[in-house]
Design a binder for these strands. Structure first.
Length: 571
DNA sequence: TAGGTGGGCGCC
DNA sequence: AAAGGGCGCCCACCTA
């Protein structure tokens, strides 16, 4: 067990205080004031690799990063762990700041969490000005004392989980979530290598030259709009307005139910094809065009802000820049530095494999023992029709009932009763208003009014209740899989981060580092001579994650790994 | 004018 | 008969 050290920065200036703790969180000595927190942290990190206990890595780590010679190995993020514990204790969504934990400990009124920076409510005044750390502590409270006390309380609550196996898994989850917070801060600091030149060329090819007047449409987009108007009779209309588009098509004798691309693609008319193209290009322009480049990708690095645990399933969210929605076509712009390479690894067919491991379905586990899972599934149960196999299994995991999927589900139910029973049990729990959890114990939110869809056409209360219950069932059905996949991915990320830190390098500047993480995919930017070692580290981390999360399972989680100069060349 | 909502689509 | 899970972002549009 690594030693633990609580830390709190001074509110002003570079100093702070440290306090060593035992595993239960009991202080092993008095607080130690240090004049230079970054220097003190660096020294203690080198000497003893402690687990740093702090209020929140997102605010605590970023200011230290530029001054640390090496990355921190591990931490305990009180805010993230508090959120996990509260959910586990049936108090999903309760305030999770250090101040909230402190208040609950002392029977004080619990302060609401501050709105996330960048959110709509965040610009409401000066609160954040006086609480940049978002701790929400009562005035006069000693932050280090609060860190020590709330940590001890969290350790007590973790130890109170009765089932030893469940306790071990949940502790793993808190450690992985905390490690993720370190990785997220580091990735924001390093940035994703982004070639502004390549991006410019791509945009110019697709849209025409960058408009000299900001806010005007690039030439090719404007021409496309005119062509579209001409194809519908020549009257001008705004292609971005759904109602105007619907009217223009109707006037030309083409009734549309919506302007969705998939509907347009079924219509054999030049205007439909032009509109689809316009939408594709327009989206790139508005969401990932020159304005985006100016805001997010200056200086050869795209620096998104990741929100660890930002999705209820444990997936990460991002804030600004759309880091997790980079269009495939723009991957051409992600280019390694000269002499460096990108190691891109994504888990192949992660979610069905997770289902196989969760349900311990022997048959499905055999199809997930390696190679192409859908191919194996098709050979076993669908006369070699891979598309059907994939459609059926995805439908089972998402709760799909429409289309021609019924017969496929019936086959799966016969062939893989344990796996289908698993998702159907999760769905029933949800329909009955219950709560499910991931493999490591991350609970889903409780049933609430959110799931009552009151916008539907008038109907009896019973119908609304049934609709809402089924929606809840689809959610819990998918949650067990999506959230357990997130458990695995988080464990992989933590293991990989540790393994990268163990690679021998001459200087810290030569160390391979994570630059991207997207649900089931990781990317490492590495000096070319270490690329093979990095690829091996990713493989090892994936296998470590499998063992940690699922224990003894025949299911394998193969990675598709590519070593490339450019992201677009991976797979 | 600002904020909220819904359509639509990018990613997994 | 049928209503496929999770997000972020931008637009038009409506309302206060």
């Amino acid at each position: 067990m690594a030693p633990r050290i609580a830390l709190a920065p001074d509110p002003h200036g570079p100093g702070g205080r440290l306090r060593p703790l035992d595993d239960a969180g009991t202080p092993l000595g008095p607080p130690e004031p240090v004049p230079d927190l970054a220097a003190a942290v660096a020294a203690r990190e080198a000497a003893e690799h402690p687990r740093w206990v702090w209020a929140a890595a997102d605010s605590g780590y970023a200011p230290l990063l530029p001054r640390l010679p090496d990355r921190l190995a591990r931490c305990h993020d009180l805010r993230l762990v508090e959120a996990l514990l509260l959910a586990h204790e049936g108090r999903f969504g309760a305030p999770r700041s250090l101040g909230a934990g402190w208040a609950r400990l002392h029977g004080l009124p619990v302060p609401a969490d501050l709105p996330e920076p960048g959110s709509a409510e965040a610009d409401d005044g000066q609160d954040t000005l006086f609480a940049p750390d978002r701790l929400q502590l009562p005035p006069g409270t000693d932050p280090l004392a609060a860190v020590v006390a709330v940590h001890a309380e969290q350790q007590r609550r973790l130890a109170a989980i009765a089932d030893p196996a469940a306790r071990a898994r949940f502790r793993l989850l808190t450690a992985a979530e905390s490690a993720g917070a370190l990785a997220a801060a580091e990735m924001a600091d390093d940035g994703l290598p982004w070639s502004v030149d390549v991006h410019d060329r791509l945009l110019t090819e697709l849209l025409g030259p960058r408009p000299t007047v900001p806010g005007t449409q690039p030439r090719l987009l404007a021409e496309l709009a005119v062509e579209l108007q001409r194809a519908l009779g020549g009257r001008p209309f705004n292609p971005d307005s759904h109602s105007q588009v619907l009217r223009a098509f109707a006037d030309a004798g083409i009734p549309l139910a919506s302007t969705r691309s998939w509907e347009l693609k079924t219509i054999d008319h030049p205007a439909a094809r032009l509109l689809v193209r316009y939408k594709e290009l327009s989206r790139i322009h508005v969401a990932h065009g020159w304005a985006w480049q100016d805001a997010w990708a200056r200086g050869g690095r795209f620096r998104p802000e990741y929100v660890v645990g930002g999705v209820v399933s444990g997936r990460w969210a991002s804030r600004g820049g759309g880091a997790l929605q980079i269009p495939r076509i723009l991957r051409r712009a992600v280019v390694a530095d000269p002499g460096w390479l990108l190691v891109v690894a994504d888990a192949a067919q992660l979610e069905p494999r997770v289902l196989a491991a969760l349900s311990q379905d022997a048959g499905l586990a055999r199809t997930a023992a390696g190679g192409d899972l859908y191919e194996a599934l098709a050979a076993t149960a669908f006369q070699g029709d891979r598309d059907k196999a994939k459609l059926g299994l995805l439908g089972a995991m998402y709760g799909q009932t429409s289309g021609d999927i019924g017969p496929l589900l019936a086959i799966l139910r016969t062939r893989y009763p344990a796996a289908m029973g698993y998702v159907e049990a999760a769905a029933r729990t949800g329909e009955d208003g219950g709560v499910v959890a991931s493999r490591l114990g991350r609970p889903c939110p409780p049933a609430s009014a959110d799931f009552l869809d009151l916008t539907e056409a008038p109907e009896t209360a019973g119908d609304a209740g049934g609709r809402s219950a089924r929606a809840r069932g689809r959610f819990t059905r998918n949650f067990v899989i999506q959230a357990s996949a997130a458990d695995w991915a988080l464990a992989l990320l933590a293991a990989l981060r540790r393994r990268l830190a163990e690679l021998p390098v001459a200087t810290a500047a030569d160390r391979p580092h994570l630059v991207f993480f997207q649900h089931d995919e990781v990317m490492v930017h590495t000096p070319a001579n270490l690329a093979d070692a990095v690829a091996a580290a990713v493989e090892a981390a994936a296998d470590e994650a499998r063992r940690l999360v699922f224990g003894d399972t025949p299911v394998r989680f193969p990675l598709s790994t590519a070593v490339v100069e450019c992201y677009a060349d991976a797979k």
